[in-house]
């Protein structure tokens, strides 16, 4: 499941998300996008380690990141409250 979805064509490659991710799951890629920026990427295998904390998305100046959370995790969180 994809927890972090980075709209690569919106990304300007500022790397503030890279800096923000507490698990160091995000990195700048190796290709240029339509802006001529090197967008941030997250490897598919790292999606599982993501806790959906959304720190990357909060720091993103371009609103290019969407965060998803497993429904089960959400339900667990709800039941704990």
């Amino acid at each position: 499941m994809l927890k972090v979805v980075i709209e690569e064509e919106r990304c300007k490659g500022c790397a503030l998300c890279v800096d923000a991710c507490p698990a160091h799951l995000i990195a700048l890629g190796s290709r240029f996008n339509c802006h001529g920026a090197i967008p941030a990427i997250i490897a598919e295998c790292d999606q599982a380690r993501c806790t959906s904390c959304a720190m990357c998305a909060r720091m993103c100046p371009d609103a290019a990141i969407s965060i998803y959370r497993e429904l089960k995790a959400l339900q667990d969180a709800d039941s704990r409250q």
């Binding site: 499941m1 994809l2 927890k3 959906s52 959304a54 998305a57 909060r58 990141i65 969407s66 965060i67 998803y68 959370r69 497993e70 429904l71 089960k72 959400l74």
Partner: peptide, 8 residues
Amino acid sequence: MVARKVFA
């Protein structure tokens, strides 16, 4: 797996 968007 079901997921919900939590940040958009």
